[in-house]
């Protein structure tokens, strides 16, 4: 009896901690979706590239992954800006290509990133081992992995900073305004092309941050991105399209359900739990968590 409760508590806590990092990645996707009105199917590939940047920093230069993250974020911000400006934006300017079809370009970008990385790193499974990788923390009788705890705390700090940025700064408000009504934002003097580029860069940087935090917990290989694209897509739908708060909560929900699934159903089925949640949400709560908040 006692043991069952410990197992349950541990499962719940680990799920929420993991979910916090998923949230960060999904918020990046949500921001991009809000402003560009497209699902960025290259999002997971950006997470993956960010992870490789941290990996290189760690293995070649001995930089701690949590420091490497602050290198991966600007690199991915820059990469995101370039992708938006020189690839996606080209399509936006062509009237005959519907916005819905711009999604296809992001699939192309995903393939290029994945195969480009494979060219250099092969398909080998890699991981970054640190002195604290296998440390655990005890809450009562429950043992929690240290990288999970650190990752969650940093992810929440980033989420909070992002919230402050979006609500307090003019640049952040311009991003929200552009997402809500692009033409009206232009009338107010917002350079919407610049905002779109910055938003894509920001989304990519958040993807990199999330990836860096997950690196001590996941194996790294070129196709790992697909997993993150799928997760963030599910979280984004679950949260309510374009809602940052929805994505934050959605991430926790998915992390939690994966963790419960892995413990009580089977390790192999943990991703299925997320998909089942996804279908349930589409069936019963098509507006996502955001529609609950709005009553």
């Amino acid at each position: 009896m006692e043991d069952a409760w410990i197992k349950f508590g541990q499962t719940v806590i680990c799920g929420i901690l993991l979910g916090g990092m998923y949230s960060l990645i999904a918020i990046g996707m949500t921001l991009i979706m809000g402003v560009m009105k497209i699902v960025n199917l290259a999002h997971g590939a950006l997470v993956m590239v960010g992870m490789y940047v941290v990996y290189i920093c760690a293995t070649n230069y001995g930089i701690d992954p949590y420091i490497g993250m602050f290198i991966a974020m600007p690199v991915l911000f820059f990469l995101g800006c370039l992708i938006q400006k020189y690839m996606i934006n080209r399509l936006v300017e062509v009237d005959s290509i519907l916005p819905e079809n711009q999604v296809l370009l992001t699939v192309g970008i995903m393939l290029v990133l994945t195969e480009g990385i494979r060219l250099f790193f092969k398909s080998d499974y890699r991981s970054v081992v640190t002195s604290y990788s296998s440390d655990t923390l005890y809450i009562g009788a429950m043992s929690i992995s240290v990288p999970l705890v650190i990752g969650f705390i940093i992810a929440m700090a980033f989420t909070f900073l992002l919230h402050m940025f979006l609500t307090k700064s003019d640049l952040g408000k311009s991003i929200r305004a552009t997402a809500q009504d692009r033409d009206a934002a232009i009338f107010m003097g917002v350079n919407s092309s610049k905002i779109t580029m910055i938003t894509f860069g920001l989304g990519a940087a958040l993807a990199a941050a999330g990836g860096s935090l997950l690196l001590p917990l996941f194996y790294l290989f070129p196709d790992v991105g697909h997993l993150f694209t799928a997760k963030s897509f599910i979280i984004t739908i679950l949260g309510g399209l374009g809602s940052t708060w929805g994505a934050a909560i959605g991430g926790l929900v998915i992390g939690l359900s994966e963790s419960l699934g892995a413990t009580y159903i089977s390790m192999g089925y943990k991703d299925v739990v997320g998909l089942v949640m996804f279908i349930l949400v589409l069936l019963f709560l098509p507006g996502g968590i955001r529609s609950l908040v709005k009553r």
Partner: peptide, 14 residues
């Protein structure tokens, strides 16, 4: 064409 999910104050700031 207001920014519907921003507050009145934020709309003015915009």
């Amino acid at each position: 064409r207001l920014f519907p999910e921003m507050t009145v104050r934020e709309n003015l700031e915009m």
